[in-house]
Structures are given as structure tokens and as C-alpha cells.
Design a protein around this nucleic acid. Structure first.
Lengths: 145, 145
DNA sequence: ATGTCTGCAAAAGCTTTGCAAGTAC
DNA sequence: GTACTTGCAAAGCTTTTGCAGACAT
């Protein structure tokens, strides 16, 4: 992982560069699974065994305020974090309880056009996010898993 | 509120008809604001002052299992409940922290057509929900509030 | 009559907070 | 040097659980 790039992200947001923050940043980039605070703590402790869960929450909160991450709520009880600040939608797989980001400019334009014509009374739309729920289809006919 | 209709809803789901359940049901129908458990408790206590918050949660949970309500998670920390089981989307107003349901068959068809053409690899879509975020526009030029 | 539901309180689980000690700048 | 961060533990909040008593059928 490109160390100086991580440092850059923090300094640009006027955050002090600490090993803990770098570690959490790296975890967020490595774990592409919209990790929970707990998962981030586990990942980070491989290298920084003393990092407290409270600190992970503090750091994530700071990142949230500085708009380095977004929070994703699911039907489960924890918040999950997402570092990707590009506009995207979410694909939830009910079976495996996974969240993946879904990018689709064509769809975004379609929606934008749609709501340009058909406005919602008295409402100014800032953002439209889709939640696509369903299941992944297994289709590995002969190969073993 | 139509008492026998409330009774009907419960019996059809094979739930015993208790005053507490009727009260929560009524609250859900009256409060069209996607209430929290706390708000439901407050509403219900006007008529049933002894109803415990724990009971409200128990009842809501039973309703959730029987698919009488859905749970809605927001950026805030509590779950909000919605009795409307028709397909709908959500309009979040950031300023006033309100959630309203949004129904739009035309939009639903548009999305269905779109994903019929452009599939998501290996994924079977079950449901698509929009989260429309923005703000209500005040436009009461002369009237007082 | 009996299986289910309520009320209350206590517990659980995720997240936040407080403060002393440590660290980045 | 100083203001910000960390670590740890304790507190906070919503939600769940356990159990005795009450109630619907």
C-alpha cells in the first residue's frame, strides 16, 4: 500500500498523521467489504496490537466528519464504513449479507432525466441512491469450490 | 379508527388480540411519520398509560416477523417503523429529518425495464428501493406559520 | 385450562465519552 | 511547547431477554 498516498489523504484534510490513522485508512482500503468497526479493529491489530476499539471509533468518526468515509446502515445492528466517495449505489445480497458498490452513469442520467420531468412537489432532490436487494447466483457447474 | 379492521389484521396473522397490540397498531396507522419505538410508546400511553417500552419493542418485533411492519434505518440511531407494505421508495428531508413514502409506478417500470436490459452479473434482483435525499422547499410567501 | 402475552427490570451490544498519558507538528 | 490523539474503562443508548403474573381463546 502506497504509504505516502495515505499520508497525503490525511494531511489534505488537516489531520495529524498518526500510525493508528494510517492503519485504519489502510484497513479501509484493503477491506473492500464495507467493514464494521469491529472488523477494522481486527485487521488493524495484526500490525498494531494495542489499538483500542474506542480509538477505531474515534478515528472513523473523525474520518466521517472530514468526509473520508461514509456510513452505511443495514438491517443488522452495526454501522459499516465505506471509503469510496464517488457516487454509487448499493447491492445487498440477502444470502451472504454482503454489500457491494454499484456504479452506473447511464442509470444516474436516466434517473436525473426522469426527475427533471417529474418533480416531487416542494422537494429539492440532492441525491438519489438505489438499494438493490437480491441474491448472487451460483453458477459454477463443474468446478469445485 | 376502525376497530374491527385492526382486529382483523391481527387475527389473520394468527396473533392474539390484546389491547396493547391494538394500541400499537393504531399508533402505527395514526403516526404516518415512520415513528420510532419511543414515539409509538408515547402515543400509546395516552390511552394505555402502563404500557412498557419493552412491550412496544416485543410487539413491534412480532409485527416485523409477521410482516405487518418494516424497519427503516436512517443515519440516526434508532429504527423507525413503517406499516405500509406496498412497494415504495423513501424521501428523506435532511433539514427536518423526516421520511415520507414515495409511490411511483412509472418509475418502477422504468427501473424494471432498465435492469431487464442491463443485468448485474451473477445477481438476481429481488427489489429496488430508492432513497431520495434532499430538502423541502418553503414557499409560503405571505401566510404565517 | 393453557399457551401466549405483558410488565418490569436487568442485561446485552454497539458506540460515545472522559481523562490521563503520549505524540505530531 | 502545545494542541491534538490515543488507550482504557466507564457510561450511554437503543434494543433484547427473562420471568412471574395476567390474559385471550
Amino acid at each position: 500500500m502506497n504509504y505516502s498516498r495515505l499520508v497525503d489523504i490525511l494531511s489534505k484534510k488537516e489531520l495529524k498523521v498518526t500510525p493508528q490513522r494510517l492503519a485504519v485508512l489502510e484497513a479501509l482500503m484493503q477491506l473492500k467489504t464495507h467493514p464494521t468497526a469491529e472488523e477494522i479493529k481486527d485487521y488493524v491489530r495484526k500490525k498494531n496490537p494495542n489499538l483500542a476499539l474506542g480509538t477505531v471509533y474515534n478515528i472513523l468518526d473523525t474520518f466521517y466528519e472530514k468526509r473520508i468515509v461514509t456510513k452505511v446502515k443495514t438491517d443488522k445492528d452495526f454501522v459499516r464504513y465505506d471509503m469510496d466517495m464517488h457516487k454509487h449505489h448499493h447491492i445487498y445480497c440477502e444470502e451472504c449479507d454482503s454489500i457491494e458498490n454499484y456504479y452506473d452513469n447511464e442509470l444516474d442520467e436516466l434517473l436525473q432525466d426522469y426527475f427533471k420531468k417529474k418533480r416531487i412537489p416542494n422537494f429539492k432532490i440532492k441525491e438519489i441512491n438505489l438499494q438493490i436487494t437480491g441474491n448472487y447466483i451460483e453458477h459454477k457447474p463443474t468446478k469445485t469450490n
